[in-house]
């Protein structure tokens, strides 16, 4: 079972990143739950979602100690990093203007802007690529999830797949 929290500013694509993890899990016939924060905080403040991927029926969609944390802004690091499960990993945006989690071997800073290149809005997808091996989900499932999520905006599929692959390659080289 993987318990994943994705958190960041509204507009950074944290909700769709979480959703794609759930989509990919469903493609593999795993049990999954996706629980977004909702309400006014979605409009500009910090948004987050909890995603559970499990072989068994998902017991609680509420996560107390994530195995995997994706934090795309400073408040998210402050809020969720202290609860990271033992042996868990936190992925943060390398461009974050703080030294959050620096020096910790379980905190991985991903150069999202660099990976996404021209496709600035694809930074969340680059992050999906970077964390993919830790979710234990297959690349094909993530690709299928992207195709699903963007089925009404097909012009964005290729550029997002490129971001996914950039993230995966970066992780392969830089994360042990």
């Amino acid at each position: 079972m993987k318990q994943i929290i994705v958190s960041g500013f509204g507009g950074q694509g944290v909700i769709s990143l979480g959703l794609m993890i759930s989509y990919a899990a469903m493609k593999e016939d795993r049990n999954t739950s996706f629980l977004p924060s909702y309400g006014p905080e979605m409009r500009g403040g910090t948004a987050n979602c909890s995603v559970v991927v499990s072989e068994k029926e998902v017991a609680s969609p509420v996560i107390s100690r994530p195995d995997l944390l994706v934090a795309l802004n400073v408040p998210s690091v402050a809020k969720f990093l202290p609860n990271l499960a033992e042996g868990g990993r936190a992925f943060i945006d390398a461009d974050m203007p703080v030294d959050a989690g620096k020096g910790r071997s379980d905190v991985i800073a991903v150069p999202l802007k660099q990976l996404a290149q021209a496709n600035l809005k694809g930074q969340n997808i680059a992050m999906l690529g970077a964390i993919l091996s830790f979710t234990e989900l297959q690349a094909a499932s993530a690709e299928a999830a992207i195709r699903d999520v963007f089925k009404h905006k097909p012009q964005f599929i290729d550029s997002n797949l490129a971001c996914l692959h950039a993230g995966m390659e970066w992780a392969e080289k830089n994360v042990r």
Partner: peptide, 10 residues
């Protein structure tokens, strides 16, 4: 509840 309404599952 709000959680059930907002959450997604297969």
């Amino acid at each position: 509840d709000g959680m059930l309404g907002q959450m997604m599952e297969p």
